[in-house]
């Protein structure tokens, strides 16, 4: 008897927790409300199925439990189980019902997925580049086109590995050690790239995410629908500093966005500033720092990484670390 009661309590407790939980999706900040809706549909289809099945089990335990010793004492008593090996009609109905339930989940899911993988024509491209354990961002600049890249070209004076002979790349705007800025209401196709290991660009409020794979350019698209400053997390295990690979994205009104973008350096400007610097400073300290790290052998704590980033400055941060 009390076994049945506990089983009922498991079902009801789950339901109550679900209805009362203070832990739920954060307020959405992108156009992917349809993902939340698909989750809701899934709850509406599967939640009742769970409750019904568990309550049915509880009912069976209550109704058909053996009276103590009855089976042994009187095997021919009323408590003997019924014998009905198959019931084709019932099994067919259950199959059809389940298939319908599954179709109700799948159909809207595939429609939304189709939207997710179909980038609208008016989306602007930006690039997010991951490396252990920080983010870099690249905007296409005045020509609206991102320059082509190659990981082989990455160096202290070319942190994104841009092809120097690609004219599209010269006006690309490079951002490292600063927030990512997006314009409210502007669809954006986020191109994702990694220099070293797998990362995953994840902003909980945007719902969207995608892995960043060295050797590939992956993408997702989204439209920010409210202004604010949101956390960027890495969602694909990328080594010791995985938990500390954070950043921020700021969604601005158009005017603020344009003002911010105007302050940023283009690739050409960055190269020029480096040449100025190298005239003044005999050697670039960064290379020494890198050798420090690689000679040391063991991975560097991300706290040290961040500290190093701040001291070295926003641009040549990749891999710059001291211990």
């Amino acid at each position: 008897m009390w076994v049945a009661i506990i089983v009922v309590l498991v079902a009801l407790g789950s339901l109550v927790f679900h209805l009362m939980t203070p832990w739920w999706s954060t307020e959405i900040a992108s156009n992917w409300g349809s993902m939340d809706l698909t989750i809701d549909i899934t709850f509406w289809v599967t939640g009742p199925a769970f409750i019904i099945i568990v309550l049915f089990v509880a009912y069976c335990i209550y109704k058909f439990r053996a009276q103590s010793g009855a089976a042994e004492a009187a095997p021919n008593s009323n408590h003997k189980a019924s014998y009905e090996p198959e019931n084709k009609k019932l099994e067919v109905w259950l199959t059809v019902g389940t298939a319908i339930g599954v179709a109700i989940l799948l159909a809207p899911g595939l429609v939304v997925w189709n939207n997710y993988v179909t980038v609208p024509d008016d989306a602007v491209e930006i690039e997010v580049m991951g490396q252990q354990w920080q983010w870099g961002y690249r905007y296409p600049g005045a020509d609206g086109k991102l320059g082509t890249t190659d990981a082989r070209l990455v160096s202290g004076d070319n942190p994104f590995g841009l092809h120097l002979d690609d004219p599209n790349g010269q006006d690309d705007i490079l951002v490292e050690g600063d927030d990512l800025h997006l314009q409210l209401g502007q669809p954006v196709n986020v191109l994702l790239r990694s220099l070293d290991v797998l990362h995953d660009f994840y902003v909980p409020e945007f719902r969207a995410k995608m892995d960043m794979v060295p050797g590939l350019v992956t993408f997702f698209w989204m439209t920010p629908i409210r202004t604010g400053r949101f956390d960027i997390l890495c969602a694909e295990l990328c080594g010791t500093g995985h938990y500390a690979m954070r950043g921020n994205v700021v969604v601005d009104e158009k005017a603020d966005y344009d003002a911010w973008l105007a302050e940023q350096q283009t690739f050409a400007q960055f190269r020029a500033s480096l040449q100025d610097k190298s005239k003044n400073v005999k050697s670039v300290a960064m290379n020494d720092v890198i050798e420090d790290k690689t000679d040391g052998g063991s991975p560097v704590s991300p706290v040290a990484m961040n500290a190093a980033m701040n001291t070295v400055g926003p641009m040549p941060a990749h891999g710059a670390a001291t211990r």
Binding site: M35, I39, T42, V112, W113, D200, A208
Partner: peptide, 15 residues
């Protein structure tokens, strides 16, 4: 069924 339904998986994967 949540995670298998590709678009529901997007916000929930790796969480």
């Amino acid at each position: 069924l949540f995670l298998g339904n590709v678009v529901v998986d997007v916000p929930l994967s790796d969480t």
